[in-house]
Write a protein that binds this DNA or RNA. Structure first.
Length: 233
DNA sequence: GACCAGGCACATC
DNA sequence: GATGTGCATGGT
């Protein structure tokens, strides 16, 4: 067999494994209905607030912003930093997240007239670069915004994604964010709906079965080859 | 009381 | 370039 054929075959095997994982997760957990948020702006705000934070706490902060009538671009824009920090307090890291939200909103007003609609026509790669240029928006937050707020076919990688991929031997333990994203992007059809559901399902199974003390018993991926005692993070 | 949660930027070596 | 640390609330 030629080298290129071997690579092709390896790629097909990975694609099959990724598909099997998805099928098993979906059969068990069903549709996850992500992103939980009513508006595009709410999704973006939630993506920043949920950084290293339990979603339940984010919901409280979002509710505060809603009650204050500030869950819009204009609303956040007119709040000063300390007011904003106080409203998002339940989400933790409130001082730094207030700055991050302001960084985003200021960029939106400076470059796009404060209107998210003006971002719709921006090419996905360019939009990602723009988002990553904002201090406080890293890879995961940028990709979450691209996928869930702008419906771009971008695979979101997070700690759970890494754990599942490592445990099932799909990638080397020292792989970085880009390599993990590539693993999924290059072996799955470029389908927004699929990426949406797949990431949400990985978070779901990660929360229930892939914590540090691996509880593989009952995990929908239990029958697949895995190494529960692998060291990561 | 310890540990964790849908990260990120920055300091230091 | 890799590793360590601050940021902070609320649930289990």
């Amino acid at each position: 067999m030629s080298e290129s054929n071997a690579l092709l075959e390896a790629g097909e095997m990975i694609a099959e494994q990724l598909d099997e994982i998805y099928q098993l997760l979906f059969e068990r957990f069903g549709p996850q209905h992500w992103w939980p948020g009513e508006t595009q702006f709410e999704i973006i705000t939630g993506a920043i607030l949920t950084q290293n934070t339990n979603w339940a706490n984010v919901e409280k902060a979002i509710a505060n912003l809603k009650s204050a009538g500030c869950l819009t671009a204009e609303g956040l824009y007119r709040l000063d930093l300390s007011q904003l920090a106080e409203l998002i307090r339940p989400a933790g890291y409130y001082n730094i997240k207030a700055k991050r939200l302001k960084n985003f909103i200021n960029r939106l007003f400076d470059n796009y007239a404060g209107n998210l609609t003006n971002l719709e026509s921006v090419d996905t790669d360019k939009l990602r670069v723009e988002l990553l240029a904002i201090k406080g928006i890293g890879h995961e937050t940028a990709d979450s915004i691209l996928l869930y707020a702008f419906n771009r076919a971008v695979f979101v990688v997070d700690a759970y994604t890494a754990r599942v991929a490592f445990r099932h031997g799909l990638i080397e333990p020292d792989s970085d964010y880009e390599q993990l994203g590539e693993l999924f992007q290059s072996h799955l059809p470029s389908d927004t709906k699929l990426f949406n559901e797949y990431h949400a399902l990985l978070v779901k199974v990660g929360k229930e079965f892939c914590r540090r003390e691996a509880r593989c018993s009952g995990c929908p991926l239990e029958k697949l080859p895995h190494t529960p005692d692998i060291e990561y993070f």
